[in-house]
Design a protein around this nucleic acid. Structure first.
Lengths: 208, 208
DNA sequence: TGAAGATGTATCGGCCCGATACATCGCGAA
DNA sequence: TTCGCGATGTATCGGGCCGATACATCTTCA
């Protein structure tokens, strides 16, 4: 899953690890906790070995280009990596519907075709509905057995489920009628399916 | 964290692994996905080695008590395990405030003293507030840069944060004024701090 | 100049997951 | 009666991901 996130970010612009982590934490929001370096660097190494990305040493300061032993490393997606990302974008399996997977896929929805978007949204909805049903008949069946705190936790969980289902319903409806999810920007409410959409280019701020 | 959950469940009644998993999935609700056997059995082994629990072979059928090679194993908490659980109950560190940790701790709130309950609730609130702030000034600062889908994901995440903070506020208020969280059962709204509370005994259904 | 703090790369031990395998039990159809 | 099949139950393995930690470099400011 993290593989997909990295490939997607690098598709927008080359970056080094530190930037990648910040971008990741920013875009993935609540569905995915901030990624750890203990995960990030091994994964980058793995992607490099697989040939999806390439590493390129780069010095931080402008003047001495190669004096330092350990400078920053800029990661760049390769042609194979782009193919790989396209594959990942199009597929929707069970791991696409858990919190982390859904968050990553949703983040790249503007680069996903509408059919896949719908498949994912509906799969996620199904998943949450199952969770909700489980919670419901647990609370119904267990008026005793559960103490007040546990019950309150379930109640809150159930509420969150119902809320997310409603959110998904709305998104699905919008998808079917060809609308963008953006409610505050009605100007973009006409665009049909997106293949290479108006992703704002992400300036690759080397020195902010 | 799983260690605490297991110890807590076994404090209510001895169980075998399969039961434990179901009980776990039931009580922990949404904050914690169903535990995997690949985690459960190694953890049980670890707890046994540490001396917190004891394993005891038991045949499933009633008649032949010892004919089978691999029967079910009933796990039981030891005196040391109870001490350990009491320690875990009382402590509140950073790992107590993430989703999984908070879920487990909250589940055992009826066995936690009020001061610790308040510490945990407030720590969790602080954690969620930080997440919320991060989300807020991300959305404020990034009117461009973020496409409509990413923005919508953030908006939904922000909403969930605000909702959880309100929920926590309410729980904290209730704690301070000495009320039980159960809104549907006003009969239990008078009990002061709980040390060995009316936990319903969990019948240990050996044959359902 | 030099110390503090932000930036940046990297490893290690350990928790936990999904997939898989395998054994036993209860029950109903052939 | 027996055979198979689904539920119950224990167990392992590879791998993803995390938190803690270490260490190097750059920027800033007193």
């Amino acid at each position: 899953m993290l593989e997909m996130a990295i490939l997607g970010l690098l598709q927008e612009a080359p970056m080094h690890g530190y930037e990648l982590r910040k971008e990741l934490a920013a875009k993935l929001g609540t569905l995915r906790a901030a990624i750890s370096y203990g995960t990030l660097y091994p994964t980058l190494k793995r992607l490099n070995t697989a040939g999806w990305i390439s590493e390129q040493a780069a010095s931080t300061s402008i003047v001495p280009p190669m004096t330092s032993k350990r400078g920053r490393i800029v990661y760049k997606i390769t042609a194979e990596g782009k193919e790989r990302f396209a594959d990942l974008l199009a597929q929707a399996g069970p791991e696409t519907y858990d919190d982390a997977g859904f968050g990553v896929h949703f983040t790249f929805f503007s680069r996903t075709d509408r059919a896949t978007r719908l498949r994912i949204l509906e799969g996620r909805r199904r998943r949450i509905e199952e969770r909700r049903e489980g919670l419901r008949d647990m609370m119904a069946r267990a008026g005793d057995r559960l103490d007040a705190y546990t019950l309150e936790l379930q109640r809150h969980g159930l509420d969150a489920c119902e809320r997310e289902v409603r959110w998904l319903e709305e998104l699905i409806t919008n998808e079917r009628s060809g609308r963008s999810p953006d409610r505050n920007n009605p100007s973009s409410a006409a665009g049909p399916a997106v293949e290479t959409p108006p992703v704002t280019p992400a300036p690759h701020l080397d020195r902010p």
